[in-house]
């Protein structure tokens, strides 16, 4: 009985100590980890979209609650005006979800650029959505409203040859972003005033 009790006490004490330690460490590092993830996973796409901005878009970010989740928005300042934001949206690709960063100018609703952040598309085929700048460039300057489709479906952009599903996924992500953008535009404008 004594032995049994000892086993229980030792294991419980060890587990709670380890749990407490890890929880504390996690709290400590959470912010740093989030920054690192932004820098290395989404950072390249954000910096590419908001190229030439006067500020650091990753440092100047804010969050808005949409439904259950919080969405991060990255601010880009051009010509002294903070009118451009980048945010992430997802679409269904060939191998899973495609994460898409999309930058939009709220003064004229025009897309300033898009870039794939995370994907699990076929390397060399679907992955060109991320690596081939010509595909992403087609979205530049379009107005972020309504549905985005590839030309086969009667839409605006050429699909990547051989990667129709991926291209549709990206277009879907942009359509989704348009919906988010329209519903949040007043809030976005409000928040952006704080960055002037």
């Amino acid at each position: 009985m004594r032995e049994m009790l000892k086993m229980i006490i030792v294991l419980t004490a060890l587990c709670s100590f380890s749990g407490g330690l890890l929880a504390a460490l996690r709290n400590e590092t959470m912010e740093k980890i989030e920054n690192q993830q932004l820098e290395f996973v989404k950072g390249p796409a954000i910096r590419d979209i908001l190229k030439g901005s006067a500020n650091d878009p990753i440092a100047d970010r804010f969050k808005i609650k949409t439904g259950e989740t919080e969405k991060s928005f990255f601010v880009g300042k051009f010509d002294g005006k903070a009118e451009t934001v980048a945010f992430e949206s997802t679409g269904k690709g060939f191998g899973g979800d495609i994460g898409l960063m999309i930058g939009v100018n709220i003064a004229n609703d025009k897309i300033v650029g898009i870039g794939v952040t995370t994907h699990s598309e076929t390397p060399g085929i679907g992955s060109r959505a991320k690596t081939d700048p010509r595909f992403a460039a087609q979205f530049k300057g379009l107005t972020l409203t309504g549905d985005f489709k590839i030309k086969n479906d009667g839409g605006q952009v050429d699909a990547i040859s051989g990667a129709t599903v991926t291209s549709k996924g990206v277009a879907g992500a942009v359509s989704d972003a348009a919906k988010t953008y329209l519903s949040l535009k007043p809030e976005l404008a409000e928040k952006l005033k704080g960055f002037k």
Partner: peptide
């Protein structure tokens, strides 16, 4: 438990400081 704790510590620290 001991080993797993240390491994998780390493994992968190690596994520925070040497993400690549």
């Amino acid at each position: 438990i001991v080993v797993a704790t240390f491994v998780t510590v390493v994992e968190l620290l690596m994520q925070a400081y040497t993400y690549p």
